[in-house]
Design a protein around this nucleic acid. Structure first.
Lengths: 149, 149
DNA sequence: ACTCATTCGTTTGCTACCTAACGATAATTG
DNA sequence: CAATTATCGTTAGGTAGCAAACGAATGAGT
């Protein structure tokens, strides 16, 4: 742990990174006893809230690259938390379904929504709105600079 | 790409994640032609600015886990960009030095400081200060919740 | 009906991050 | 001075992210 003076001159970008990693670390810590990664949790969360979903739709909703998602789904299938079947309509697509094991695990998982409250609770709506505006603007500018195909 | 309505209700945490990944993606894109990862660049940046450094000091300064840094240094040594020697005083420690090849590469690398300006340039000092305050506060609260040894 | 373009998911290869454990070395304690 | 604790860096094993390429299936255009 470094003292305050080490972080005094960190940029917005640096704080964005630190904040993201702090939230992720806490999530990973709480999920570790359940042998679940934070993105694995995110996928289960989506299936619990949206029901069986086409893999591509889920990937778009959670903003996960196809290669990334493919690996995560493989892990969840191996853990028998998710079932992956062919979609009848379009043989290119896969349908993802929460298994009974997955549902049982979900019921045992701690509620992680406290993390966001713990991080940002009590901060004024105005300050939160400003932060969102700044991060949103920055994200969009950066994505504009990325050469998208 | 999803339309605006998909991002309307994203939380601060979600925007923090998106912003971080957008910056990282841009950095990785610009560095790819030089066969350099963004954290590898960060290590070179530190050595250029601070001179030869003890590995642990560098790790602390850049907030990298020992295992993470060990792997990154191994990659930079394999690429002959960094030399890793024993520190005379303390045989547990390693001294990291930029090689001539590393210095030559650094001179050829594009200046990436534009990324921060591109992301946050033109935003009022007050808004930036608010964003930093919010992210800093959130980070510290999350780190407090993490069980640190 | 055929050709070409696009989409979907996987695989390969890589970077980055992290926990836990280990061995070697140094610091601390009694 | 010996025993214990702490530190440093590596290794093992895992999660997560991404680019690029591939094959199979579907859609678009003629």
């Amino acid at each position: 742990m470094h003292d305050q003076s080490d972080t005094k001159n960190l940029s917005v970008g640096a704080w964005t990174k630190r904040c993201y990693f702090a939230g992720r670390a806490l999530m990973d810590e709480r999920l570790r006893p359940f042998d679940l990664g934070s993105t694995q949790w995110y996928v289960l969360w989506y299936l619990v809230n949206n029901g069986p979903s086409v893999q591509r739709d889920l990937g778009r909703a959670l903003e996960l690259e196809r290669a990334t998602l493919s690996g995560i789904i493989a892990t969840l299938v191996r853990k028998d938390l998710v079932a992956q079947t062919a979609d009848g309509d379009d043989q290119r697509q896969r349908l993802l379904t929460l298994t009974a094991t997955g549902e049982a695990l979900w019921r045992r998982l701690p509620d992680l929504s406290f993390i966001h409250d713990a991080a940002f609770g009590g901060i004024s709506e105005a300050d939160l709105a400003t932060t969102i505006r700044v991060l949103k603007s920055a994200t969009e500018r950066l994505q504009t600079l990325l050469r998208k195909d």
